[in-house]
Structures are given as C-alpha cells and as structure tokens.
C-alpha cells in the first residue's frame, strides 16, 4: 500500500514536459541573444551551454526545473537531456539556489601549500557557514573549488567575474564589506558577462 501511495505522489507532480503548463520567462533581449548564439553553430543542440548561461541569468542565478524546461523548449530538446548537461558542469547552479554572492575558494595544490584551508576556516568563522551553505540573510554562499588556475596569486578566490588573491585576513574583510555594499548579485552579473562574451559587438 505504501508503494501505491508513493506512486500516487509521483503522478501528482506536474509533469515537467507538459508544454501547456510551461511558463516562458526569457526577456525579449534574452530571446534575441539566444537567436544570435544559435547562428554560431551548425546544430541547435550546441547552443545548450550558452542557453543555460542565459537561463541562469534570467532565473536569478539558479537553474530551477522551470529554467531547464524553458531551455529544452526553446532548443527543441528533451528535458532530461538538458538537465543531464546542466548537472554535469559545476558552474551551473542546479542543486541549491545560491546566495547573492558566491565565494569560491581554491584549495588545490599551490593554494593548499600556501594555507588555503586556513583561509577557508577564516571565512567560515567570519560568515558563520560551512562550504556549500548560504548565510541566513541570503547574501553569501561559500564553496571550496578546484584549481582556478591563478596559482601565482595563491591563495585565490573567485567572486562573480573577479579573482582575488593572495588572500589575507584584511583583504577578506575588505572584499566582504565591498560585497555587502553592492546592490547587484555577482552571481547573476557573472552569468550576464558570460553571455555577453559570446555576442559580437554588432549584435549587442
């Protein structure tokens, strides 16, 4: 009986591929950007990655199932295919909605020997969160990442489209204070910047 109840709940979930329930959220600008990007490739499928970047921006920094469904719809792909692609790449936020700013601390080799875990500890104490957590006010998400390839600036951290390093406690304080004063989310801003570099000047 319990199995049946399980099935019941499953079938009550709105089906993700139901086109009639699909709400399209892309702005007009986003649609024309996607059209331009599609023209760069001989296949529509190849635009999935850039389209996911557009969706990450349009959906407030988070690729919800609605966002993925919209990309699938616009590129005429199956939902599962686009979801499979999105979850493969670490820079698409598919698991949790990130905070307004994502602090990505590199702890890989050169950063590791230069004290990356000490820095990570320090940030954990300052923000009161552990990696993969978001502060209660929704401002910061902390993440430990693999090599950012700026080893000459170890220990290095990425926030949005900027790299910061070598990190010290005072630099961290400055960065955090600066981020608190910003109105724009660096997560959304970064997705926007990534979309823009795909577009030739003539199309902007």
């Amino acid at each position: 009986m319990s199995d049946l109840i399980g099935l019941q709940t499953l079938s009550e979930k709105p089906t993700r591929l139901d086109q009639s329930q699909l709400k399209l959220n892309f702005s007009e600008a986003a649609v024309s950007q996607l059209e331009e990007i599609k023209s760069h490739y001989p296949s529509e499928k190849a635009a999935i990655l850039p389209a996911l970047w557009i969706a990450q921006r349009e959906y407030g920094g988070f690729l919800s199932s609605e966002a993925i469904a919209e990309v699938a719809h616009r590129l005429h792909r199956a939902y599962a295919e686009v979801e499979g692609v999105a979850t493969f790449y670490s820079m698409y936020n598919t698991r949790h909605k990130p905070g307004k700013h994502k602090l990505e601390v590199c702890t890989c080799l050169s950063c590791h020997v230069n004290g990356a875990y000490r820095i990570l500890d320090l940030i954990e104490k300052k923000l009161g969160i552990r990696p993969n957590e978001t502060t209660e006010d929704g401002l910061f998400t902390l993440e430990e990442v693999e090599c950012l390839n700026a080893c000459d600036r170890a220990v290095v951290m990425q926030v949005g489209d900027s790299y910061y390093g070598p990190l010290t406690e005072s630099l961290l304080d400055t960065i955090i204070a600066d981020l608190k004063s910003r109105t724009e989310s660096t997560v959304i801003q970064m997705a926007d910047e990534i979309v823009k570099v795909h577009l030739p000047e003539s199309a902007v």
């Binding site: 760069h40 990655l49 996911l52 970047w53 790449y89 670490s90 820079m91 698409y92 570099v197 795909h198």
Partner: peptide
C-alpha cells in the same frame, strides 16, 4: 566564435 565552458 567564443564558446564558454561551465566548470569541468
């Protein structure tokens, strides 16, 4: 053309 990766 420029094509951006997404972390891999």
């Amino acid at each position: 053309y420029i094509h951006m990766g997404a972390g891999s």
